[in-house]
């Protein structure tokens, strides 16, 4: 699951972490557009270099590399499928071309994932929530998003506890054929579900006493504010992107 590892936030204090999440999101989107627009190798390589520089500035290189490593199986799959597709449809004349184009597609997928990995690695879920709010997404959706992040590790721990409890009564989870193994999921899933239901009830009670949904005009302790450095970053990335657009449309 190393690909997910690359999407988990870790607290940091770098210039990249401090950027407004909306700017970071936009940068990721622009990168995505470039990846879609260009197939030229040198541009794609440049994009990777830019990303590497950003990862370095944010001190998340190792985790960023993990995402890339995690996305390799997926990239191999894309490569294989495309190669088969190109060969069977005869889109490209030579084998060399087939391989080149399949590789580019696979590589673009990696770029796509790694660009979002930088966003998620340097943006707190709380900031993502604030971003959603600033886009006027109704609060219940934002709340659902934040709760999902808040409770995932708790439920993962619960799952481990249940497995320990059931193994302690003689259930051998990793023995038997596929059918037997599927049957062994029941003693794990039923308690997990029962716990989840009870937890949901308790959460609902606590939400109730904390006035959830009392008013449509919900306020918020923190607010996203664009600062000069955010505008600067925005300007730089938009200029670079426009240059790229211009060259694509008129020069190439």
């Amino acid at each position: 699951m190393s690909i997910l590892e690359g999407l988990k936030f870790y607290a940091g204090d770098t210039a990249i972490h401090k950027l407004d999440p909306r700017v970071k999101f936009l940068v990721s989107m622009l990168m995505l557009l470039m990846v879609v627009m260009y197939t030229e190798a040198w541009i794609l390589v440049t994009l990777m270099v830019v990303q590497a520089a950003m990862a370095y500035a944010a001190k998340v290189v190792r985790r960023w590399l993990k995402t890339i490593k995690g996305s390799i199986p997926l990239a191999v799959l894309v490569f294989g499928l495309n190669a088969i597709f190109f060969i069977t449809t005869g889109t490209h004349a030579t084998l060399q071309e087939v391989l080149y184009h399949s590789a580019t597609l696979a590589y673009r997928l990696v770029l796509f994932l790694s660009s979002f990995s930088i966003f998620f690695l340097t943006t707190t879920p709380e900031e993502i929530g604030l971003t959603l709010t600033s886009w006027r997404i109704p609060y219940p959706y934002t709340f659902a998003f934040i709760s999902a992040i808040r409770f995932t590790p708790i439920i993962a721990q619960e799952l481990r506890d249940i497995m320990d409890a059931q193994r302690s009564r003689g259930i051998e989870l990793d023995k038997g054929g596929p059918l037997q193994r599927a049957k062994k999921l029941v003693p794990i899933l039923v308690p997990l579900l029962a716990n989840a239901l009870r937890r949901a009830y308790e959460l609902a009670e606590a939400m109730e006493v904390k006035c959830f949904g009392a008013t449509k005009n919900r306020t918020s302790l923190r607010e996203l504010k664009m600062r000069s450095r955010d505008y600067a970053a925005l300007l730089v990335s938009l200029t670079l992107f426009s240059l790229a657009m211009y060259s694509r449309l008129f020069l190439l």
Partner: peptide, 17 residues
């Protein structure tokens, strides 16, 4: 090992299905 050492964990409900 469980035949020899029976372990009861904190949350009893983790067992019931």
């Amino acid at each position: 090992l469980s035949r020899i050492v029976g372990v009861v964990f904190q949350n009893a409900e983790d067992m019931f299905f």
